[in-house]
């Protein structure tokens, strides 16, 4: 299985992005990122949960205990308005940095 290290800061962005569709629990977030990245990006659980805690404390998501598809008690994370704003800001910033990097990579 190909495995690429997550660039720093990207994990938060990805979490916020996959949560835009609706509340998910931790495992589902990891799976979604893994699947959406065509199985290139693998989220280390050791960094996923700390990142979730950080986002939680920033107020970008809320967490609520619910029941999983497999009928287990689990915490669902849901994007807040602040989180949505943060996501837009980060996406915008990321796009511009990305374009800049691409430009350099193409021409240099």
């Amino acid at each position: 299985m190909p495995k690429i290290d997550m660039p720093p800061g990207a994990l938060v962005l990805l979490i916020l992005r996959v949560l835009r569709a609706g509340p998910l629990h931790g495992y589902a977030i990891a799976q979604r990122i893994h699947a959406l990245s065509a199985e290139v990006l693998r989220v280390e659980e050791g960094s996923l949960y700390p990142a979730l805690q950080k986002i939680l404390l920033k107020g970008w998501v809320t967490a609520e205990w619910g029941t999983s598809e497999t009928n287990r008690k689990v915490r669902f994370y849901e994007l807040t308005a602040a989180g949505r704003k943060q996501l837009e800001a980060e996406l915008d910033g990321y796009d511009r940095v990305n374009e800049a990097i691409q430009a350099v990579l193409r021409t240099a």
Binding site: G26, Y27, A30, E45, Y49, S68, T70, R72, K73
Partner: peptide, 10 residues
């Protein structure tokens, strides 16, 4: 509980 769930799902 949360981590255990994650592990079991894996």
């Amino acid at each position: 509980r949360e981590l255990q769930f994650h592990l079991e799902e894996l």
